[in-house]
Simulated assay, not measured.
Amino acid sequence: MKRSEALIPLSREHHRALVVAKRIQALEQKPENLLITYWRDVRAGLQQELELHFAEEERGFQNLLSGVHKERFLNDHQELRELLAKDDPEAIIRFAQCLKEHVRFEERDLFGWLEANHSRQLAEAFLAD
């Protein structure tokens, strides 16, 4: 399915997030110091990118959501923010898993629902400039 123009930039950012999550998961089988070193190298930039991404999504369509979609959307963002603040291996692995699941949720479920039910509002929120 072709993604709405309004959501394409967010989908591209999702791709970068999945690359990081995959790298973290690959490091799970390696010596712990490699995982910690990678995390310390990418965390600050990732935190900045995700905070901007989350803020854009929350500003753009949080008010269009309700019920289970809204609950999952907000809970995932909160959990990812909390995990970004930690640097123990278990939290890093959990972060990668949560990030991957969250991107899948948005790409496979939430974005399609938004496109079907709120295409005009998406265009106004993301394409107006």
Rank of each mutant, 00 (worst) to 15 (best):
E107G: 01
E71T: 11
F73V: 02
E107V: 03
F61R: 01
L84H: 11
S11M: 05
D109E: 14
F105S: 00
L65V: 02
K2Y: 00
R59S: 07
E32R: 14
N75W: 00
V19K: 12
H69A: 07
E13H: 06
G45K: 13
L64K: 01
E28G: 00
L27V: 10
D129W: 08
P9R: 05
H69K: 02
W39V: 09
K100H: 13
R43P: 04
M1Q: 04
A128E: 13
V19M: 13
Q121W: 08
A91H: 12
L35G: 09
L35I: 11
F126S: 05
L7F: 10
R94Y: 04
A44K: 14
Q25M: 15
K86T: 10
F73S: 01
S119Q: 15
L84V: 07
Q25A: 07
L10E: 01
I93N: 04
E51G: 01
A116N: 14
A21M: 10
A125P: 07
L122I: 10
R81N: 10
F95S: 02
E90D: 14
L27K: 09
D109H: 02
L83W: 08
L110G: 05
Q97T: 14
R108D: 14
E32M: 14
S4F: 09
K22H: 13
S66L: 05
A6C: 11
L34C: 08
P89Y: 11
K30T: 11
I36K: 10
L46C: 05
L52I: 05
L80A: 04
Q62E: 09
P89W: 10
F105T: 01
E56D: 10
C98M: 10
E57Y: 00
L46Y: 12
Q47K: 13
F105E: 01
L10P: 02
E28C: 09
Q29R: 13
E56P: 00
T37F: 10
D76F: 06
T37M: 07
W113A: 06
E106Q: 10
F73W: 04
E82L: 14
